Simulated assay, not measured.
Amino acid sequence: MLTVAPHLRTRRPSPTTVEYTVSTSPPPTLPLRLLLGLTILLRVTIGLSVLLLLYSKFLLSDYSTPLEPYSSRPQLQSNAFIWYLAYNLTTSRLGALFTHLATLTPPIVLLPASFTILYLLSLRLHTTESLLVLRGLGIQTSSSSSTFLSGSTTRFIPTEKIQDIFVNEAFRGFEVRYYLVVVVEGEESVVVVFPRLLPRRQILETVWRGVRGCLFEPEEKAG
């Protein structure tokens, strides 16, 4: 329900600009928004719990210094406010529970398990890849990263560097997969569009016709 098969969305900001976006994100309905909100809340809760468990384990080690209570609440903008929150959290019932769990869990188990959970929590639910076509300028490819820890990967290819654009096919195991490629002048390897999703052939043909129509056909007719 949270992800669907790769589908195409087309946006035309101007007569000379068109953007093709392929995504596994379903339509943003109200039930889906609520479900995504609960998923984010669950991720944040689990992530903070793991961090609190690691911090409790650190306080039990020889490398930490005991936290001292504050006679008054520090200002919100000060660094002391962070230590004020840390002291009140670790001395609360919740903090005592996590301290007890940290005592029972050896570091050789806690550290790998914590970092694995944090990495899984950083994975994106959806994959989004786009192709922006600018008539007279070129094309820009963009692919979202697999985690929230890094940004999207983008590349711009000027029109004068584009030699050809076509749909190719290749065997992937016992399956035939189609992909859209751009032949760039001066480069031995081709640039694959939508490399992570590899949408079905109908989507690729729609994008191929649109890209050629926006980049090449007006110039060919003018000549």
Rank of each mutant, 00 (worst) to 15 (best):
G151Y: 10
S130P: 10
G136A: 00
L121E: 03
I157A: 12
L137V: 15
R135D: 00
H126K: 01
S142C: 15
A113E: 06
S144H: 00
S146V: 08
Y119G: 07
L149A: 02
L123Y: 14
S152G: 05
S114C: 13
P106Y: 07
T147N: 11
S145H: 02
F115T: 14
P112V: 04
S144G: 15
P107D: 12
S130L: 09
P107L: 09
L132A: 15
L131E: 00
S152W: 03
L121M: 09
T116R: 05
L120K: 11
S144V: 03
T153F: 06
L125H: 08
A113V: 13
G138F: 02
L137Y: 07
S145I: 05
A113M: 07
F115G: 10
T153E: 12
G136T: 02
L149Y: 01
S142V: 02
Y119Q: 10
G136M: 04
L110W: 15
S146I: 08
L125A: 10
L121R: 12
S150D: 03
L110A: 09
L131W: 01
P112Q: 11
S143L: 13
T154D: 08
P107F: 10
S152C: 06
L110M: 14
Y119S: 15
S114F: 00
T154W: 01
F156Q: 00
L132C: 15
V109P: 01
T147A: 06
I117T: 07
T154E: 12
I108E: 09
P107V: 08
S146M: 07
F148T: 08
S145P: 09
R124T: 00
L111W: 06
L110Y: 12
S144K: 01
T147F: 12
G138M: 10
T153R: 14
P158L: 11
I108Y: 09
Y119R: 07
I108D: 04
T128K: 10
T154R: 09
G138D: 01
P107S: 12
F148A: 00
I157W: 04
L131P: 01
